[in-house]
Amino acid sequence: MKFDNKIFKFIFIVPVIIYSVFLIALPLLYIFWISFLKNDSYGGIINVFTLQNYIDIFADVYIKIFLRSFLIALGTTFICILISYPFVLAVSHKNKKIQQILMTLVMVPFLTNSLIRMYGFTVLLRKYGVINQILLNTSLINEPLELMYNTFGIMIGMVYTLLPFMILPLYSSVLTIEKPILEAANDLGASKWQTFKKIILPQTLPGLFNGSLMVFTPALGYFFIVDILGGGKIMILGNLIKNQFLTARNWPFGAAISVFLILITSILIWGYKKIGGKMDDLGGM
């Protein structure tokens, strides 16, 4: 179909424009706006300009939260990469039908609400949960392991929830490598590891970065995973923002942290473009 008619085109675009403006752009602008305002003691916002919110971010206690968030997000990204590469490479060597089945299985967990899945994990991981019971009953351990209410539990939840976001872009970029190219590398004397380093890795870099971005960014903010599997003892950026808005009722400060988070993400994308990445490669899943 070809839409030469401008009005026709416009009608199709309007819903998208309305959605983007009213549900994304305006709320973000509002967040940006109030991040420069003061709050009063009752959770209200006072229309007085200040940079105090941004200065507060650099207090020791928050810097620690930032660092912890980054470490958790980095760790999650790294583990996701380690799991995804072998999986994706193995899948890409199967025949088309099996590939489809396996990739559908990757998507299946999305059919259930992730909050519910996290509660599912507590059944597995808690002190006398399924895993500890099995280990105790088989006498592999004498005392239950601390599998949750710590960073370990959070990482399990993060990796579990975010893994598909690494697998999907990586899978689609692995598919761009034609099989004869891998055979040629092998034929020219490259070992499996050399083939990976010289051929597969460079060619899947866009997918890798895309996946990393899609894992790293949410990992900074997925407060519900931290709340449930961290047991409220551990604070990351996501909880911090949520708490500022809902518990501490300091909207301007919460807004300032949000803006800061957006800034960091933007810097990452900018860095990606700087090293020669294409924005198109980021969009495709």
Binding site: E178, P180, I181, E183, A184, A185, K198, I199, P202, Q203
Partner: peptide, 9 residues
Amino acid sequence: FQNYALFPL
């Protein structure tokens, strides 16, 4: 190879 299989990058 038939389709050359050169390393594209």
